[in-house]
Amino acid sequence: MGFPFFSGLSCFGDSSQRVTNPSSSDPTLISTEPPSSIITELCHQFTLAEIQSVTRNFEKSLGESRFGIVHRGYVGNTYKPVAVKQYKKDSGFGFLEFKNEVVLLSQLHHPNLISLVGFCVERNELILVNELLPKGNLYHHLHGRNIHPLPWKRRLQICIGVARGLHYLHTGAKYTIIHRDIKTNNILLDDNWEPKISGLTLSKRVSLKSSKSLKRTESDIKGTYGYKDPEYERTGVLTEKSDVYSFGVVLLEVVSAKPPREIYREYLEDCNQSLESYAEKNVDRFLKSKIEPDCWKIFVDITERCLLAEGRERPDMGEVEVELQHALQFQEEADRI
């Protein structure tokens, strides 16, 4: 579909509430195109009073990240539950980043991408209102206390959904969208365990060329420790293959149930052993003897390729999705026997 972007801050209401100097050379954030009716149709602007009402004055906190605090709220006549993210004023998160996320979420639509309900910009408050995903994030289900471990087939299905969502970001619109912060905290789960990618705060929009070469952009180093692509950290050049690397870390985290910091210290920092050897030694004890051998071989192979040192050698997310589907087929066939 088309990817019209609005100009300036026309979607953000009264000019007295706007940032006074929104100019930037970063094409991710600013466009000279006229305002799009899609924005006003799909992106509701809440007043701060409305936000305070739907959250009962920010009564119920669902969690906190480095950028903001998420509150539970209810909107509309049906009292639809929503997640209201109130950005911290001291987080280093600015208006242009906020605008970037609103624009992207307003115009990107995919079953494996979080849906935007609306936003609020008022009295120095920056607030996003998203659909509420009842099962929380994948990180909690891998590392939380007093939870039932996810079965292997479900973990595979979640990974396939995330791969599908990333493939859409990279190829499904007029521009390549590089997420830049793929991690299990940003993978949310609905009632049916369908994953939805969130956290597009740091995402970059890159022109989609007709050639199959990598989409490159110079970028400040952003992302989360343990998930960041070392090639991106070393060169400052961001490509969609940086997301592929981060997803490879997610795959290792899913199969081991180890936090990414541990994975980085034990394996990724110096890679002094094969990935297959590391994965076999560190597979989640709940999964031992439950993974079909051919499924395991495919999973380990695609994970290893995602984590290759050179981005150009890594697979694209479409290939990753296909390989994970193949792995799932082997597992399902074995489970039927």
Rank of each mutant, 00 (worst) to 15 (best):
Y227K: 00
S210W: 10
S210D: 14
S289P: 00
E266S: 15
K290M: 12
E266V: 03
W296G: 00
K222T: 15
Y227A: 04
G161Q: 11
Q273I: 11
Q157Y: 06
L169G: 05
A279Q: 04
L287I: 11
N282Q: 00
G226H: 05
K204N: 00
P259E: 13
C271Y: 00
N272C: 04
N282K: 05
K222M: 13
N185Y: 12
S213M: 09
Y168W: 07
L166H: 06
S277Q: 13
N192A: 13
N186F: 06
S277G: 03
E292K: 06
H167Y: 14
S211F: 04
Y168R: 00
S274E: 14
H170D: 11
I221A: 04
G165P: 12
D181Y: 03
P293D: 11
I291R: 03
S246H: 07
I178M: 03
L214E: 15
C159I: 10
I263N: 02
P195S: 09
I221S: 07
G172Y: 04
I197P: 01
Y267A: 02
N282F: 02
G226D: 08
T176Q: 05
S203D: 01
T224W: 08
I178K: 00
S203P: 01
K204S: 03
V255G: 08
V237K: 05
Y227H: 09
K241F: 03
S274L: 05
V162S: 08
E280I: 07
V250D: 10
Y232T: 08
K212Y: 12
S274Q: 02
S219N: 09
P195D: 12
R234K: 14
L251K: 05
